[in-house]
Nucleic acid binder design. Structure first.
Lengths: 95, 95
DNA sequence: AACTGCTTAGACAGTCTTGTCAAAAATAGT
DNA sequence: ACTATTTTTGACAAGACTGTCTAAGCAGTT
C-alpha cells in the first residue's frame, strides 16, 4: 500500500472520464472550490461521500469504499506495531 | 466487538488497580480534568497515548494497542458493507 | 463539622477544520 | 487573440475540538 492519496485518485478518475468538478461537486452538495480542495488533499473526504462519488464518477462502489477505508486506516495507523493484529481481531469477531 | 468505549475500559482498569487519575494524567501530560473527560468519552484518546497509558496502568502494551485500534476502526467504519474486504486488503498488501 | 484526596462539571480562550465566496489562474475551443 | 469554461487560491466566518482553570461534589477520616 503506497501512501496514496485518495483525493488524487478521485481527480485522476474524474479527468479520465472528462467529467468537470461541477458535476461531482453537485452530487456531493459542495461547491467546486471544496471539491478541488478534496482532490488536492486540503479537505477531508468522508465515508458518506463514497456513494455519491462512485455514482457521479461511474466507478465501482465496492472498490471505491475498500480503497477509501484501507487508505484511511493506513493513514491513521501505519507504523503501529500491532496494526495487523488489530485488523485480525476485527475480522475474527465480525463473523 | 461490542460498541465498547475505550475510555471506560481505561477507567475500569485504573480503578481496578487503585491508581488515582493524578498518576495517569501526569504520565499523559494532561491534568485530571482532561483525563476524566477522556475516561468519560468527552475527549479523544490518541494513539500516542497508548504507550504511557499502558505503562502507568501496568497493562500490556500490545493488548492495549490492539484494543484501541480495533475500537477506533469499528467506531469509524462499522456498518460499512465492505469493511472486511478493506481490512483483508491491508493484511494482504502489508506482508 | 472540618479536613483530605479524588473525580467531575462548566466556562473559557486558543486552535483547528469546514465550506463558501470572489477573484485569479489555467485550460480549451473558436 | 479572444472567449468561455474549468480549476485553484486566499480570505473568511462558523463550528467543533482541545486542555486548563476553578469550583463543586463525593467518600473517608479525625
Amino acid at each position: 500500500m503506497k501512501n496514496a492519496n485518495f483525493g488524487a485518485y478521485i481527480k485522476a478518475r474524474r479527468e479520465q472520464k472528462g467529467i468537470p468538478q461541477r458535476i461531482v461537486a453537485h452530487a456531493l452538495n459542495v461547491d467546486t472550490s471544496t471539491l478541488s480542495k478534496m482532490e488536492l488533499g486540503e479537505r477531508q473526504i468522508t465515508i458518506s461521500m463514497i456513494k455519491p462519488l462512485s455514482e457521479s464518477l461511474d466507478v465501482n462502489f465496492k472498490d471505491l469504499q475498500i480503497k477509501y477505508i484501507a487508505e484511511k486506516i493506513m493513514k491513521d495507523f501505519s507504523g503501529q506495531p500491532f496494526l495487523n493484529e488489530a485488523l485480525k481481531k476485527i475480522l475474527n469477531e465480525e463473523v
